[in-house]
């Protein structure tokens, strides 16, 4: 019943087609978990980024310290910390949500800086005008600075989504069924090394290539008026 393998350049194409639906499903998990972490990261990043700019000095230093810690230690370490520390303080989550929390930690470290840079890029006359109208500092931040800063964050946030997707591959170590993990599982079951790795790599490249095109497009076309904010690339 089993058909002979369909070979192309030494690769078993029939097998690659066969595993494709599972791969796409795993890719969806990767994208979903990364997008979720990015969004939670924004929810935390905006208040933290705002406080980093207009908050009291000790709080600013604390946030800055947090950011340097997150950016100055390896991502895999944050996964281990979240993986061990959450149950340690009585928070029991499944692998998926542990992964989301861990990725959110990474995302926040960069998003605080994105928010800060975007807010500082809004002309300071805007803040002064708002204060002159009798607004309080938080009101000026919320009503005047943030809406203008938000558009400028979009290209940088797209880049950050790329970084988070790349970081999500490390979730394979805590058994989240994302693309890298599923690829490895198939390799261990079937020993089709090249076929699986190639397919996994191409799927990542499609998504990340599309996102980095989008980020460049947003930066050049849509936001050409604003100061270009860049986000450092992580691996």
């Amino acid at each position: 019943m089993e058909d002979a393998p369909l070979l192309f350049a030494g690769l078993d194409v029939r097998f690659m087609v066969e595993i494709f639906p599972r791969m796409v499903q795993a890719l969806l998990v990767t994208v979903q978990i990364s997008a979720l972490a990015l969004l939670l990261g924004i929810v935390l990043g905006i208040p933290l980024g705002g406080l980093r700019v207009i908050g009291p000095r000790p709080l600013q230093l604390l946030i800055q310290g947090l950011v340097s810690y997150i950016r100055g230690t390896p991502q895999i370490l944050h996964f281990l910390v979240v993986y061990f520390a959450l149950p340690g303080v009585g928070i029991l989550l499944d692998e998926y949500w542990t992964g989301v929390v861990a990725l959110t930690v990474i995302a926040v470290g960069y998003e605080v800086e994105i928010v800060r840079a975007a807010i500082e890029s809004v002309h300071k006359g805007q803040r002064e005008a708002a204060l002159a109208q009798g607004m309080t500092e938080p009101m000026a931040f919320w009503l005047i600075l943030l809406p203008q800063a938000t558009r400028r964050m979009l290209p940088a946030l797209t880049n950050e989504l790329i970084n988070v997707i790349k970081a999500s591959a490390l979730l394979s170590v805590i058994a989240v069924n994302e693309l890298t993990k599923v690829g490895n599982a198939i390799i261990y079951n079937t020993f089709y090394f090249v076929e699986v790795l190639l397919e996994v790599a191409v799927l990542y490249m499609l998504v990340i290539g599309a996102l980095s095109w989008l980020s460049k497009y947003l930066e050049n076309k849509v936001f050409s008026f604003g100061a270009a904010l860049s986000t450092p690339e992580t691996r």
Binding site: I162, A201, I208
Partner: peptide
Amino acid sequence: VRSTPFAL
């Protein structure tokens, strides 16, 4: 290099 995760 840049569009695949280092773990991969």
